[in-house]
């Protein structure tokens, strides 16, 4: 057996193309690449700037008037007075958002499970069509529809303005978001897992409740929280349903309910320092609530195992 002495290539010899010699239009490609990167950076900045300005405005104007007092007292009767707070609005917003979530989350999850388990089911295309249309309906119109159906006594149920009517309109806004995001999350669950469950003798509902839903749980929670955050920030649909109140309202029906957004609307419309300051603090609170919900949602999403 002979041992070969290795022949190592000599880069100086020039008999093989060197790595330092580039192909003809390499310079041009590098230049285009750099221009494109710059353009993309500018585009990203253009997209982020409005958000940054918005956050900065709210923080700089809202931080000052925001206080413990703001969170724990209600607004004084006159917009001229400074001090006081949005306790009634915060209660109303959380109350209506909570009730809306109780309505829309189970319904939305059920619809999403139906869409994933029976993608070609008889009602699947109808459900998809309605969720698509509902996402596009202007939120003022949702308020108007709920007014006509629930609030108004002529032609509607005559429940009057209040928590339930407001929550119903928020639920309608949340519902398509819950359905869509949940459907996507459920689709991400690997078919392998369902097969495994069926292979062990699971019935369809058992596979759904014991495997699909738990496996998708973090993603579902994220989607649901984002939908809730979206609802919590809505004002337009509440104008005709919650109407607004000047004290803390705990009743579900029979009394108009307050809302942070509605209070801000009133505050900014008056030419008085006190009311405007509180409105900025209200905006700050709303951003805290929605931002807080989104952060929680992202943290849960990161724990997903699938």
């Amino acid at each position: 057996m002979s041992v070969d002495t290795p022949v190592r290539p000599d880069p100086e010899a020039g008999d093989r193309p060197s790595l330092t010699v580039t192909t003809p239009n390499a310079r041009r490609r590098a230049l285009i690449s750099r221009i494109m990167s710059g353009a993309l950076f500018l585009a990203v900045m253009a997209a982020v700037t409005p958000l940054a300005i918005l956050l900065w405005q709210t923080l700089s104007n809202g931080w000052g008037p925001f206080s413990w007092e703001f969170l724990t007292t209600i607004e004084p009767l006159s917009y001229r007075e400074t001090g006081g707070g949005y306790l009634h609005g915060i209660v109303g917003t959380l109350y209506m958002t909570g009730v809306a979530a109780l309505i829309s989350v189970p319904l939305g999850l059920a619809a999403a499970v139906y869409l994933t388990e029976r993608p070609k089911g008889r009602y699947a295309s109808i459900v998809r069509f309605f969720t698509d249309v509902m996402t596009g309906v202007p939120s003022v119109f949702v308020g108007l529809a709920v007014y006509a159906l629930l609030v108004s006594g002529s032609g509607g149920l005559g429940l009057g303005f209040g928590t339930l009517a407001g929550a119903a309109s928020l639920a309608i806004i949340m519902l398509p978001i819950v359905v869509r995001s949940s459907e996507e999350m459920l689709r991400l669950v690997p078919g392998d897992l369902k097969q495994a469950a069926y292979g062990l003798g699971a019935r369809q509902w058992q596979a759904t409740f014991k495997v699909t839903l738990p496996a998708a749980a973090p993603g579902l929670t994220t989607g649901v929280i984002l939908a809730v955050a979206r609802g919590a920030g809505e004002t337009a649909p509440l104008i005709l349903t919650a109407l607004g109140a000047r004290e803390v309202v705990l009743r579900l029906t029979g009394a108009p309910q307050a809302d942070i957004g509605l209070l801000m609307l009133d505050g900014f419309r008056q030419p008085f320092e006190g009311g405007i300051e509180r409105a900025w603090a209200g905006g700050f609170t709303l951003i805290l609530i929605t931002l807080g919900l989104s952060i929680i949602a992202r943290m849960i999403a990161r724990r997903s195992q699938i």
Partner: peptide
């Protein structure tokens, strides 16, 4: 379902549940 309880199955790709 009863058939699958008597005749079990192991798949090509290990597919434990995320539990």
């Amino acid at each position: 379902v009863e058939v699958r309880r008597r005749i079990g199955m192991v798949f090509q790709k290990p597919n434990p549940f995320p539990k």
